[in-house]
Design a binder for these strands. Structure first.
Lengths: 154, 154
DNA sequence: GCATGATTTCAGTATTGCCTGAATGTACTG
DNA sequence: CAGTACATTCAGGCAATACTGAAATCATGC
């Protein structure tokens, strides 16, 4: 189903938001459209047509979404075409995966041990403490988040 | 004080890390060097010399750091040259400012109310719930973080 | 004020990364 | 097995951005 005006405006808003943080326009538009399109499952051809993007762009950016875990492929039995949709719980999954980045930050801080400055070494150690703090806090936070989620949809 | 090999390696590591997330190379190198340079306060000319960057680049990217709140200017009386340093508690400040982005995400979700899809509307509402959850959890988390910080350096 | 050196601005250049469109590859249907 | 529709790959164009170097501006100590 092609976009109406309100939908187009929303896709644009989502796209504008995410491009502010450096993502590609097409990537962000696909995300915005996958949030509100009907049905939720779309083929690459439909996405290309509705968003006026080339098939190549859709293929590339969609793969990026899949690799990030935001989007998944759905196989429909007896239908030759692959469909893609926003992964259920995608937003939560993104938050959960933050833990990895936190750990990477901790690594980065520890790698600075050999070059710790005499003058205000906390410029480096603070970062390590911060990463440790979040590494400890994140798992229980994620559990509370999941509990919240269950409450909404049992 | 110019860089030795170990320092150079660390600056490179920090720069590589942050460029992975889309920041400019020069921006990231300045950050890495400001984490470990001695003294912690540096002039633009020193940064340009040590990092082999042009004066223009240093000026531009340093401004970006200042605007983001990572770096601050220090005025030294009787010295005409401005100095720059990593802001004390810069890492914590960045985390605290996450709250704004969380709120913006909530806005984005609410803006989707008018185009909520019949089919799996949770694609949008989930994002709103997530933002609400974090908006609630973030302030107390930040308080615990600050408490942790105080413990380290009273 | 004036001189000096630091900082900013800006035009030009290089680089990067997105996007397209066509060619190629793949999988299902009849 | 042929035909069809979908998906992927990739070379090339294009736009955006980073960086440089030089000129202009600004601030401070004298």
């Amino acid at each position: 189903m092609p976009m109406d005006d309100a939908q187009h405006e929303y896709v644009d808003r989502v796209a504008t938001f995410f491009t502010m943080f450096g993502s590609a326009r097409a990537w962000a538009e696909i995300l915005g459209w996958l949030m509100i399109c009907e049905p939720a499952e779309q083929t690459q051809a439909q996405l290309a047509e509705d968003l006026r993007l080339s098939a190549g762009t859709v293929s590339t950016q969609l793969r990026a979404h899949v690799q990030l875990g935001m989007v998944e492929q759905v196989r429909v039995r007896g239908d030759r075409t692959q469909r893609y949709r926003l992964r259920p719980g995608a937003w939560y999954a993104v938050m959960a995966s933050e833990l990895e980045r936190i750990r990477a930050l901790g690594e980065l801080a520890r790698a600075g041990d050999g070059v710790l400055p005499r003058d205000r070494p906390e410029r480096v150690t603070e970062l390590g403490d911060l990463a440790d703090f979040f590494a400890r806090e994140w798992p229980p936070l994620m559990e509370r988040m999941t509990a919240e989620l269950e409450k909404g949809r049992p």
